[in-house]
Structure formats: C-alpha cells, structure tokens
Amino acid sequence: MMKGYGLLVAAILALQPPQTVFRTGVEIVEIDVSVMRGTQAVQGLTSRDFALTDNGVTQQVESVMLDRMPLNVTLVLDISRSLFGERLAHLVQAGETFTNALRPDDRVALVTFSHQIELVVPMTTDRQAIRSALGHMEASGSTALRDAVQLAIALDPRDRARSLLLVFTDGHDTVSWLTEAAVLDTVRRSGVVIHAVRVESDGFLDRLTQAAGGRAWSATSDRQLRGLFTRALDEMRARYLLTYAPRGVDTAGWHSVKVSLKNSRGDVTARPGYSR
C-alpha cells in the first residue's frame, strides 16, 4: 500500500511507471489489492469497478494497474528444529519452485529464522544464489517468528518495485522479543504485503496477513508446500495497485480504508488502512 509512511511526494516520482498518476505536491495513497473468485484471480478490472473509502469518506480511485511492476519478494523461512528431516526437504523444493517462477526483473531475498535471524541472501536477481542458499539450510533451534517479520520489513529496500513478504512457519513463536501488537503496528506503518504459508494453525499469521493485505494458506501435509508457494506467487502477480489522492480526510493517525467492487463479483483483499 503506502511506501514508508505513505506520503509519496512528487520529488520522488520521476521513476514511476506510466500508468501511475501523481501530481506535484499531492499525497498519493497506494492500495495493493487482490480480487479472487474462488481460487481464481479476477482480471480486467478498471478504476470504475472499485469503490474505496478512507475513514468513511468516499475517494476517487485515480488509477488501477494490473500490476506489471517487478516484485521484491523476501522469503522469510522458518528453519527451527521442527523442520528437521523431510519437511525441510519439501520447504527447499517449494522455495526453488518459487524462485524459478519469478520473472527476470523480479528480485528476491532470503531471510531464515530459528531463534536466530539471518539475512542469508540480500535482495538480488541472482536466482542461483537463492537456490544454493536454500540447499544449505539446516534445521535447528527455537522460533522467533515475530522478530523475523520485523527484521524482514525493516530490510525491505523500499524502492519502486512492489514489496512482498512470503512467510513460512510450521509452528508457533517461542522466543521473540517483540509482542504481536508491536509487529502489527510495524506492518501498518509499512507498505509491505505479507503472505504466509503455514503447516500448523497460528492465529498470529491470520492477523499479520490481514493487517498486511495478504493471505494465509494452510498446508495439511508437507507435500503441499510447493503448490502453496506457487499459489502465493500467482496471487502476488494478480494484484491491482489502486491509487488515490485523499480528499476530506486530513487527520493524522490511523486511516481505515475499505475497498469493494461495484460491478463485479469477487473477494477483495486489501490492508485495512494506513498510518499517516
């Protein structure tokens, strides 16, 4: 959605893709939106198809882009001791399949976490570096999921590519310093969309992805990981980037945003708002 604190000013807009509309000195809000009908992404929508309110005030959606901007994807992968064995092998396969399906101008980073968080490969277009790092992952230790999400968001390059986190975990946080409230606040302040694939049910991931306008998928077996990683990438590709210049909502603080469809059927997923 919004980059940084959500205020995009004209000075940094020279690099914008042509379909995005910006005006000098005007704040522009970007909302990253997914529209699904069942398991299929709904395509071909235009600005006229979306209704959007900011703190309850109807806004004029100025542009809708079926997104062709490159992706900055950070894979945030749990390698705690419960991954030991076959599950880790399936995770490596899923990561490799995901990496192979990226487009040439997409970039990807690899963050792993147990109790210790590591930026294993910084944001790169070098697929081989990612594949090699995936192959060297070893499972051990406890789980610092919340701390890892915070670090991955902080590491996001915040350039004009679309920032996405794909988080995988098979358990619950056991050792993070940060509270859930702190991490969700960071998410609301950032523009990063977060998807999650999990093996066990974890309420935090539901709240995390909901706050970040993403989705959470649950695997009932390790063999499903590859398919779910692929679905996550498909979902990332099929998103719309709505932009609007907020009108009638000048207050600082949290802005609640609601997006719906006017003329089509589909489930809209977007982050619930932004901090200004």
Binding site: Y5, L119, I153, A154, L155, D185, R189
Partner: peptide, 24 residues
C-alpha cells in the same frame, strides 16, 4: 530487533533499516 522496531514507531524507518542491516 528491539531498536529497529522502536525506530519504526518513532518514524525513523531509515534508522530501523540501518539497524536491520547492521544485525545482518
């Protein structure tokens, strides 16, 4: 991790990022 988070809350995302890179 803690400082990176607090700098985010203080409105200093660049400092939060710097800390994350220092840790990395």
């Amino acid at each position: 991790v803690a400082l990176s988070r607090v700098e985010t809350a203080r409105g200093h995302p660049d400092r939060a990022r710097e800390l994350a890179h220092q840790l990395a």
